[in-house]
Design a protein around this nucleic acid. Sequence first.
DNA 1: TGCTAAATTTAGGTATACCTAAAAATTATC
DNA 2: GATAATTTTTAGGTATACCTAAATTTAGCA
Lengths: 236, 236
Amino acid sequence: MTPDISTLDRGSSLQRDGLNHQAIEDYLKTIYMLEREESPVSTSRISAARNVKPGSVTSMIQRLNKLNLVNYKKHYGVTLTPSGQVIALEVIRHHRLVELYLIEALGFSWDEVHVEADLLEHVISEKMEERMAAALNFPEFDPHGDPIPSKEGLMVDIRGQRLSTIKIGHTVILARVLDDKNSDLLRYLADIGLLPGARVTVVDVAPFDGPLTVLIDGKEKVVGQKVASTVLVEKA
Amino acid sequence: MTPDISTLDRGSSLQRDGLNHQAIEDYLKTIYMLEREESPVSTSRISAARNVKPGSVTSMIQRLNKLNLVNYKKHYGVTLTPSGQVIALEVIRHHRLVELYLIEALGFSWDEVHVEADLLEHVISEKMEERMAAALNFPEFDPHGDPIPSKEGLMVDIRGQRLSTIKIGHTVILARVLDDKNSDLLRYLADIGLLPGARVTVVDVAPFDGPLTVLIDGKEKVVGQKVASTVLVEKA
DNA sequence: TGCTAAATTTAGGTATACCTAAAAATTATC
DNA sequence: GATAATTTTTAGGTATACCTAAATTTAGCA
């Protein structure tokens, strides 16, 4: 008997029994994210992203391949199959909804929610997902500006460009923070007001990839290139 | 090096890393519950309660014993150590808080929350626990009337007696439903109004362990012995 | 007391998800 | 185009949490 997705897929692709599908879901999520950057995805990229040894990645990829969740060609790389994408997007939807819910409904700060959501994303039911989405009035973006996939698996595209590329004199709106895992960075961004929705005017850029002087909602701040390149902005 | 509780105990005794302590927590919870009925707890009782083969129970007990979470004497039975009790009570607290939160904050019905809580109880952080408790105004009882242990591990005693033991003519208040796993039963109870807080007068009891005729909040209903013995009541 | 029945433990096996270290394949460089 | 460096895979091992089946211990009963 060949194992197939239906073994995994009950209710809505996620685990609802005693089985631990957390590892599978985490791999699919990771592969989905990495495919946005470059596809196919190599063993080493997954290994680095998941902080797991390359050998472990290979054996898990082989398992995912048997389950028809990824396309796999030795020494070449992996891509998600449609079934794999469905699961990945569902996990991402859960993650982002949970992050927003923790902030909006339970008063968490945005630098705390990532770790919590990484666990909850594998455990909440479809019903809970629906109820949280309804309580949040069916949001389209999470607290970091990341789009929340719809129940049908649709997600708006990555928009905007890095703040570090904006020329002096231009005013933009902060749309998205690219790193949601670095709590220290997130606390710093919140501190200086660099939150999604903030109006940012580039006043000056020091030479040789130097820091940017910006007006954030009226107040002048100086931010380094590293910080400026982790936030995406849109035209005001 | 002898393994000890400190390996497990980070933050507040529950898992906060990649490790899967769910099985341990489930066993401790089960043993705690069974000890309320009779202590020490035999292998077969745990086996029945957890729906796991006796041999599996023995090997898990041996592991828990090495971790100093249970006292274990071969062929005799197990009891929880203080460390084991701390974890058990924390899991129970999580479970009952989650059940109440799902009903109060997310509009679940009381027959749906048990399964969900069985998963979430192992995953929520101390912070989330606190925030949910605060949102619920630090409740003392869950939707089934089960007491919610305090953060310090204190829990009020089981009070009341089974409705089936109440004599004709007496009026009582429903305090607690003893079976929170049977969704069909819970739906039935909700349907006829047998919810915690309901005012129940025993109008008649048919002979030979026959059904009870009761007034529930004014309306006359007939309930069987089985149902009447799964709810605890207190003097009005 | 002795024997049987029931409960419990031990022994050996499976699947998951990791690991390390060695082998193999690919890519880069001279 | 051969060799070196890197990446990837394979092989073999660990721990968890189950399983089945056999062996052992305890308990019940004549």
